[in-house]
Amino acid sequence: MAQRPPPTAMLQAFVSAAQTGSFARAASELNLTASAISHQIAGLEEWWGVQLFERHSRGVKLTSAGQALLPVTDGFFKGLEAALQVLNPREAQPLYLSCTSSLCSTWLIPRVHGSHTDASFNLDLVLTSADMSPASLGAHQFDVAVVIGGGDYPEHHVELLMRDAVFPVCSPAFYREHGDIAPKDIARYPLIHRADDQICPGWESWFAFQGVAAPPYHPGPRFPDSSLAISLALKGAGIALGRTALVYDQLEEGGLVALSSPVMMSPAAYYIICRKGRQSEPAIARLIEWLKLSAGEFLREVGARHPQIAGAGAFQR
């Protein structure tokens, strides 16, 4: 006699924990507690008579049995959803596109605005801004996301969008007053800082790249978001570190001036991600393609109009 199938809640907990690599992230994704997820997994392991996860202090890892059962279990949910969609078609749902907060306001929104009236764009989007790390992906709702980092996003389809150059910028008024300040002299002027430089290079990294001794401590305003630091530079309050995608429009419009210095490439890049397997869905595939085309056009324009901030091979994708 065939074994009776386990409750759906157990299967959902298993799939979510396997895809996020964490009981806590699975709990957030399913609006449950981590303890509830743990009990569901334990119940499923007892039901099937196999161990599904190895438990570690930093998360969980599928056993060989878990690896064998995951595609079958995940396929059950996907097959059920596809069958129900055929039997009871729902109204088309918009795609949720999430983007890092700085890039969203300075690069993505202007390009969505420019494409929205183009009939070929034809994408129904809900645009949200969020700064997501690999560990926090399960806590956010998105179909497609643009993230900044090193490209390591487990259980996700990942494509490189573009890379950034890093260089000092200031307002035209500040530039007229002080001139084109040499890298070795920049520390003598008011600097605007990004508070958390774990992903994006800060002044300390920039000074090291230029071969200039940085001051032991440089006072100045500190912001958790690059676009806020750039906003203060626009007001003429000092020099900020700009990244190409975040300051290009302001350079074009004359709101900012790039100081002369060797271009430093950011070690972090922008990536497009979605859940593995979803990249072939027609709407998601079109959105990914639009993002890549927009980035390609942008990088070519930067190289043609502002070669001083591009550098040799700076924007190879």
Rank of each mutant, 00 (worst) to 15 (best):
G75S: 07
G75W: 00
F76T: 04
F76M: 09
F77N: 05
K78G: 03
K78N: 07
K78L: 09
K78D: 09
K78A: 11
G79S: 01
G79V: 01
G79I: 00
L80F: 12
L80C: 07
E81Y: 06
E81Q: 13
A82V: 01
A83L: 10
L84R: 07
Q85P: 00
Q85I: 01
Q85K: 13
V86G: 00
V86K: 11
L87R: 09
N88L: 08
N88G: 04
P89N: 00
P89F: 02
R90C: 06
E91L: 13
A92Y: 01
Q93H: 12
Q93N: 10
P94M: 03
P94Y: 03
P94A: 05
P94C: 03
L95H: 12
L95M: 15
L95Y: 14
Y96Q: 11
Y96A: 10
Y96S: 09
L97T: 10
S98Q: 12
S98D: 12
C99F: 06
T100H: 08
S101W: 01
S101K: 12
S102A: 15
S102R: 06
S102C: 15
L103G: 11
L103E: 09
L103W: 11
L103I: 15
C104M: 14
C104L: 14
C104P: 02
S105V: 12
S105M: 11
S105K: 10
S105H: 13
S105A: 14
T106H: 08
T106E: 12
T106A: 10
T106I: 06
W107C: 02
W107T: 00
W107F: 15
L108V: 04
L108S: 03
L108K: 03
I109Y: 07
I109N: 08
I109S: 08
I109P: 00
I109A: 09
P110Y: 05
P110A: 04
P110I: 05
R111K: 08
R111E: 05
R111Y: 02
R111A: 03
V112H: 03
H113R: 12
H113V: 09
H113E: 14
G114V: 03
G114Y: 03
S115M: 08
S115E: 09
T117I: 07
T117A: 14
D118V: 08
A119R: 15
A119Q: 15
A119S: 15
A119F: 13
S120H: 08
S120P: 00
F121P: 00
F121L: 01
N122M: 07
N122C: 10
L123D: 01
L123V: 00
L123C: 03
L123A: 02
D124W: 09
D124L: 09
D124R: 12
D124G: 02
L125I: 05
L125C: 00
L125T: 01
L125W: 03
L127I: 15
L127H: 04
T128F: 09
T128D: 15
